[in-house]
Design a protein around this nucleic acid. Sequence first.
DNA 1: TGCAATCAGAACCAAAAAGGTTCTATTTTA
DNA 2: TAAAATAGAACCTTTTTGGTTCTGATTGCA
Lengths: 147, 147
Amino acid sequence: MIKLTKQADYAILLMSQFAKKDAQRSTTELAQETGVSLPMINKTAKLLSKAGLLASTRGASGGYALTRPAQRINLAEIIAAVEGPIELTECTEAGGVCELAGRCPTKPNWNLISDAIRQSLESITLFEMVHPLFLNARHRVTPGATP
Amino acid sequence: MIKLTKQADYAILLMSQFAKKDAQRSTTELAQETGVSLPMINKTAKLLSKAGLLASTRGASGGYALTRPAQRINLAEIIAAVEGPIELTECTEAGGVCELAGRCPTKPNWNLISDAIRQSLESITLFEMVHPLFLNARHRVTPGATP
DNA sequence: TGCAATCAGAACCAAAAAGGTTCTATTTTA
DNA sequence: TAAAATAGAACCTTTTTGGTTCTGATTGCA
């Protein structure tokens, strides 16, 4: 089953908190808001910070805050921050050598497929995630679209 | 990283062999064609058969064959056959109870997202996987499309 | 100054999932 | 009846994930 890791779920949940209330706060507060354990919130926030999605300020009265408005953060970024680049198969990994190379008839298509998935996720902003009404007929795959 | 399991890769590879040459053959032959180990080919073919994508005939001179032309088999089906239903998160699993229920602000959107991914994969046929030239401007997510 | 709060980074361990093999039916043909 | 197939389940090893803990660095404030 194609599914996100729990940590990616946490990351989206965590970011959603900021989308709902855009203010700096500590991981302690975030743990209380979300119900996720403090260590996991810590771990996840670090990754989001490293990826440039959250800004951190250290020391007492420090914490995390969004680096950009929620309208300009998309799901693909959040997921990539904790899970690494979105590639459906190992063929596309940098430097990865497929042991079936040469025999595999589908290789040229994998990048297109990964792209399709990535674009699905890029098309959904953090803002929309917490405002369900905005997410409806938009953000659809349109298979029959002409070139 | 959102990625397919190796077995899903094998499944697609295996099905591609049938797309390239649509004739019944045994797993022994398929193992030779693909370079994948016989036990894995066996295991994977069983799942594809169970899912109704391959027809099996038992006994000597038996083997597997496509149940439908490759134009009418899509990637989502193949992946689902070995990995189960395509759902991005556990929220959407049947009977699954999210421990963060009530607190999670994004729940209503997950199904839409899973749908978007699934539709991406449904839009790509097995036939196209082995005929790269047919896969280009079509099969694209079009984020800005109006309702 | 020194303590407490906070992020940064790494190491670590247990549980779960994936990858793969093997074994035992059952079916069919020659 | 023997050989060639699929069907199904059990099993084990390896990898990944989930989660905690520990140490270090930074900052605000009494």
